[in-house]
Amino acid sequence: MSDKNPEKGEVSRRDFLGLAAIGTAVLSALGVLAGVLRIFKPDVHFEESKKFKIGKPEQFPVGTVKKFDDKKLFVFSDEDGFYAITAVCQHLGCIVYKTDWGFQCPCHGSKYDQMGNVIGGPAPRGLPWFKIEQLVDGSLVVDASKEVPKGTKYIYV
């Protein structure tokens, strides 16, 4: 059997059957494994929504910074519009605080400038900006699952 043209790479019927059987077994095992892994990820996480109302635009007078402690979020308002920057350090997830020159992380000393760009410390990336939307009733909604490029500011009525 195996001495039948092995150099040509031909496979005998029995070998094929064996290979196919084992292959199927491996495949099904992989499938089961994938299914098991999928169990660990529910369709919806049992936690607060990533989208949250922050209030009406009038509540953010031009030139103010508001920190939403529980949402780990800074909301800025300036002449050009509103923007939301996360307060979660991109290095290892500590909470940054605002300083005159930007943001400082207490855990490993990462520093960010006013725009959230890294200017020091180990953080691998800048603080992401989040999308702000406006609902029909006029209130602003931050979507912390959607990042926007730095410098994107939103102007609403």
């Binding site: 892994l37 660990f40 996480h45 049992f46 936690e47």
Partner: peptide, 16 residues
């Protein structure tokens, strides 16, 4: 996500 069962440490994470 697999480890935390979410994006932040919660009850799910403790269970895991």
């Amino acid at each position: 996500e697999l480890f935390l069962g979410g994006t932040n440490p919660t009850q799910e994470s403790l269970t895991r």
